[in-house]
Design a protein around this nucleic acid. Structure first.
Lengths: 187, 187
DNA sequence: CATCTAAACGGACTGCGGTCCGGTTCTTAT
DNA sequence: ATAAGAACCGGACCGCAGTCCGTTTAGATG
């Protein structure tokens, strides 16, 4: 059982984090400032969330869960019921939109000490893409191909394209559709 | 004209950096230790190379230049003379081999403060892929598609696959060939 | 209510990348 | 040779993420 003061402090920290991020953006959030703003010690922050990335992951978890639910159980074409290719296209489009909205947070969450490919949610996307590839009869190492396609949707890459090169979401969507269509279509 | 003491210190620093990396690996190299080992002040290190990433980039530059020369002016199928698709395949294969050899260095060089998509060499690969795509008649936003394909060859991704998931170079090569073949082949 | 213990707490501390500035040294012009 | 000044040097300093450990407190037990 979790001690009540621990629970109270976790809520305080999450509230304070949302506050600070709302004011100055995710990347300006430092653990010292967070601790001070929440009125707790720095050690407490790290015991609760392990690292800065862990905190970001926690903040992201609700929207991540919602996104996952949509492509796993939601209505077609994103959810089950549509052909694999259409779901693949819809997945990319939704993911791009998702990154446009929560990109900074996702970016901050990726700098985990080990990896940034081990983010729990990522495993699910890869698996999802892999399943859809198989459904479309893609037989040449779908596991690895899923990860290659997934790399295309990485937040840092997408944000760089949009913010530095002025690429529009539409253009990203079109390119994604082109990519997966060609990969899935048998030669 | 560069002052002679500055040149001397730069050589000292590069030598010391190669020493330390040879002993403990690239990611164990800290700027403090480097300065101490080279017998110069810390400020000197940063004036010379700007940042840790800049130093790594400098160390990488010879092998990068050699790699670039090979795919731009070297013999086919990597260099000019072969069909676009074959050059594309060869490019990926060579790049994968390159990352296997210099991956740690490339990884350390990517953490530039701004981007990691602005690494000067990267612009060249993207452009190269783009040109080859065009050569094969790929008309749907080759600029963006080149970057998507390039993302597949990012050092951090490749190293993660190999070191964490035990994927072999052959498997990476095959998947790359499959990917670019399908992208280039008209539907 | 008194006691006891595991858990939570906080902030000093470390190591890192990176900046700054007063002092030093090389170069050039006279 | 010498004076001027630009370029360079060193290391103290900053802010950051993350660790450590002595201290406090929740909450269960008698």
């Amino acid at each position: 059982m979790e001690r009540s003061d621990a629970a109270r402090n976790r809520e305080r920290l999450l509230d304070a984090a949302r506050d600070l991020i709302g004011e100055c953006g995710a990347e300006a959030l430092t653990m010292d400032r967070l601790a001070e703003h929440a009125g707790v010690g720095k050690g407490t922050v790290f015991r609760r969330f392990g690292s800065r990335a862990g905190l970001m992951l926690t903040l992201l978890s609700e929207s991540e869960a919602a996104f996952q639910a949509r492509f796993m159980f939601g209505p077609p074409p994103l959810g089950p019921g549509a052909p694999g290719l259409e779901r693949l296209i819809a997945f990319g489009v939704e993911r791009i939109a998702y990154v446009m909205e929560f990109g900074d947070l996702a970016l901050a969450a990726e700098n985990s000490s080990r990896g940034r490919f081990e983010v729990p949610a990522a495993a699910l996307w890869y698996r999802h893409i892999e399943v859809l590839l198989r459904e479309e009869g893609f037989a040449a190492d779908p596991w690895l191909m899923a990860r290659s396609l997934g790399a295309t949707l990485a937040p840092d890459r997408l944000l760089n394209l949009v913010r530095v090169h002025g690429v529009s979401s539409d253009r990203l969507n079109n390119s994604w559709r082109e990519l997966v269509t060609r990969v899935v279509t048998a030669s």
